[in-house]
Simulated assay, not measured.
Amino acid sequence: MAIKKKGSKKEEPIILVTNDDGVAALGIRNLVEAVRGLGKIVVVAPDKPQSGMGHAITIGHPLRLYEVELFEGIKAYSCSGTPVDCVKLAVDKILHRKPDICISGINHGSNHSINVIYSGTMSAAMEAAIESIPAVGFSLMDYSAEPDFKASRHYARLIVEKMLRKKLPQHFLLNVNIPKADITQLKGYRICKQAYAKYQEKFIERKDPHGRSYYWLTGEFVNFDRSKDTDVWALANGYVSVVPVEFDLTDYGLKQKLEKDWGESK
């Protein structure tokens, strides 16, 4: 696993690749090709789509891993669990060490704003970051069966190269979204904050042939944040959005207010 460079030995970085769309998805194939040659790539991904799984882990039944031959010259494994399970198993049972970087995606569909909470793509990356593995999740805002990944490959490689270039802070984590556009139409990437935006949801009730009710979740995306430093604004204006993410959900402002207003209990 070592490569020679200018007469000395340098360890080749290990790049763990995962996703939530499944090991055979077009997005992960394009992500592998985007970073090919930047290090030793190992793929561990779910055996089926796991979109919207968030940070779920499997605790009620055993997990299974199968080696698959889907990526030329690259070790790849199909996992019966969630995206987070994939990262945990990769570190413990396949690599037997922490990889130098973990990349997740390329997701079919956006993971901007509130979507980051529900996203299996981002939860896989977040699990790596929790373990002090620099991580990034990539998402393309295109739900079509065969999207154009050219721009996604370009920006994925660019960002991964930057991440591999020097030592990163502990728990480093990025959420990267790419607009549905030709690469020539994009203006570059923009470092952003997560927009305050959400889906106004409702359930449509229908009846099955036996007269029993079932429900489809629907909704309309509403952006409440009109500032120009958000991921939603950047994507709407032709930029790739890059949002630094953290998993500490503490509201420090409210914490200080409660400490002042409530004090400590006796």
Rank of each mutant, 00 (worst) to 15 (best):
F224M: 14
S144P: 07
V87Y: 06
K40Y: 15
I178Y: 01
K207P: 05
T18H: 02
I3C: 09
S113C: 14
I103L: 08
L186M: 06
D142R: 09
G52N: 04
L164D: 08
H210G: 10
D148C: 03
R36C: 01
D21C: 12
N115R: 15
N19D: 15
N30E: 13
L70T: 09
A128G: 07
Q170N: 13
D148I: 13
E72S: 10
L89C: 02
L235F: 00
N115I: 12
L174T: 08
C86I: 13
Y77V: 12
C102A: 13
E131Q: 15
Y143V: 10
T58W: 03
F138G: 13
M1T: 07
V32E: 01
Y155E: 10
L38I: 05
S104E: 12
V242Q: 01
M163I: 06
I101A: 09
K93W: 07
S78D: 04
V222M: 05
S213H: 08
K166G: 05
F138D: 06
I106Y: 02
S123H: 14
A151I: 08
S119Y: 06
R165W: 07
S241P: 04
E259C: 01
A135P: 04
V87T: 08
L164F: 02
K257L: 08
V35A: 10
R226Y: 07
D231M: 08
D148M: 05
K207Y: 13
T184F: 00
I117E: 11
Y214K: 13
F172N: 12
A128N: 15
F224K: 02
H112N: 14
F138V: 09
G39Q: 04
V32A: 06
I14D: 04
W216I: 15
S139K: 04
P49N: 11
G253Q: 09
E259D: 08
F224T: 05
V35N: 06
W233S: 11
M122T: 06
A125H: 11
D182A: 05
P62A: 00
I106Q: 02
E205D: 07
E127V: 14
N107C: 04
M1P: 06
S113Y: 00
V160Y: 03
P83F: 08
A45F: 00
F172M: 02
W262G: 08
K266C: 10
I159W: 04
A135Y: 08
P49Y: 05
F224S: 14
D148R: 09
D21V: 02
V32I: 11
E146R: 04
I159V: 12
L158V: 14
V176C: 01
T250A: 10
L38Y: 12
I59D: 15
G37Q: 03
G73V: 13
E33S: 12
P62L: 02
K150C: 10
E246Y: 10
N223H: 01
I106G: 05
K266L: 04
G73I: 06
I204Q: 07
E12L: 09
S265K: 15
D142I: 11
E131K: 15
I117N: 03
S144L: 07
A125L: 08
D47P: 00
A76L: 05
H171I: 09
K198L: 01
I3N: 04
A181V: 01
